[in-house]
Simulated scan of single mutants.
Amino acid sequence: MKTINVVAAVIQHAGQILCVQRGVGEHAYVSEKWEFPGGKVEAGESNEEALAREIREELHLDIVVAEFLMTIDHTYPNFRILLHTYLCTAPHRRITLTEHLSFCWLPTIELDTLDWAAADLPIVARLVSPAF
């Protein structure tokens, strides 16, 4: 089974977090699900560099990668994903969608109202946890 190394950004601005909705894809179990934006790490890139690049490419947004949050090791039916997640900040909320269907900014307490991709669920659980 193929393992994919990816990064994700929990982008915070003015007390809310950016959530993006995936487009329709070849795998129904992730199609149109919500996720934290990010993408694949390319050869020679650090996770932080990959994350900043992916957010610029997909959302036309410059972010500050603040700190590592957690790594998720999740196996979908057709592939395994290692999802390295970072807390990030953005200077504003203006984005341009280039790959996603939709986006929203939500307060932490409302994150669990969306239909998340399975690999992102542990991140949501951590963020909405009273211990966070």
Results as ranks from 00 to 15, higher is better:
89 T>H: 10
91 P>Q: 13
25 G>W: 12
92 H>R: 10
88 C>A: 12
49 E>D: 08
99 E>Q: 11
80 R>N: 13
63 I>G: 03
106 L>C: 05
108 T>E: 08
92 H>E: 14
25 G>P: 09
110 E>D: 14
41 V>E: 03
64 V>W: 00
130 P>C: 05
121 L>A: 06
55 I>R: 02
112 D>R: 00
40 K>F: 01
73 D>V: 06
2 K>Y: 08
107 P>W: 09
15 G>L: 09
77 P>F: 08
41 V>L: 02
51 L>K: 01
102 S>V: 00
12 Q>W: 12
64 V>G: 00
38 G>Y: 04
99 E>Y: 07
81 I>Y: 05
63 I>H: 04
73 D>G: 00
13 H>L: 03
100 H>V: 04
57 E>D: 08
12 Q>M: 10
42 E>L: 11
84 H>S: 14
44 G>K: 00
59 L>F: 03
121 L>K: 14
12 Q>H: 14
47 N>Q: 09
110 E>H: 14
107 P>V: 13
126 R>K: 15
132 F>K: 05
34 W>H: 12
64 V>S: 11
90 A>G: 02
26 E>H: 12
108 T>A: 10
37 P>F: 13
86 Y>M: 04
110 E>P: 00
78 N>Y: 12
47 N>G: 02
37 P>E: 10
79 F>R: 02
99 E>V: 12
82 L>V: 09
120 D>F: 05
70 M>P: 00
58 E>K: 04
12 Q>C: 09
88 C>P: 02
44 G>V: 06
111 L>P: 04
26 E>M: 06
26 E>T: 14
46 S>T: 13
22 R>N: 15
21 Q>N: 01
29 Y>G: 01
10 V>R: 04
76 Y>D: 12
47 N>H: 14
67 E>T: 08
104 C>W: 01
80 R>C: 08
5 N>K: 07
81 I>S: 13
91 P>V: 12
114 L>D: 04
26 E>P: 06
27 H>Y: 15
8 A>G: 15
22 R>A: 15
112 D>K: 01
38 G>T: 01
120 D>S: 14
132 F>Y: 15
97 L>K: 07
20 V>S: 06
11 I>C: 04
76 Y>C: 12
4 I>H: 10
131 A>D: 11
100 H>W: 12
36 F>C: 11
42 E>Q: 10
114 L>I: 03
107 P>E: 14
8 A>E: 05
61 L>D: 03
43 A>V: 06
17 I>L: 15
97 L>I: 07
60 H>E: 08
23 G>P: 09
51 L>R: 00
62 D>H: 06
116 W>C: 07
52 A>L: 02
90 A>L: 07
1 M>H: 08
86 Y>R: 03
51 L>A: 04
35 E>K: 11
103 F>K: 03
132 F>S: 14
59 L>V: 03
101 L>P: 00
74 H>E: 11
67 E>Y: 04
103 F>R: 02
59 L>G: 04
106 L>Y: 12
57 E>T: 02
121 L>Q: 15
101 L>M: 08
127 L>E: 07
81 I>M: 13
90 A>M: 02
87 L>I: 14
36 F>K: 10
51 L>C: 06
109 I>Q: 11
28 A>S: 10
116 W>N: 06
81 I>A: 14
93 R>I: 04
104 C>M: 11
76 Y>V: 11
87 L>P: 00
38 G>V: 01
21 Q>E: 08
126 R>V: 05
131 A>G: 00
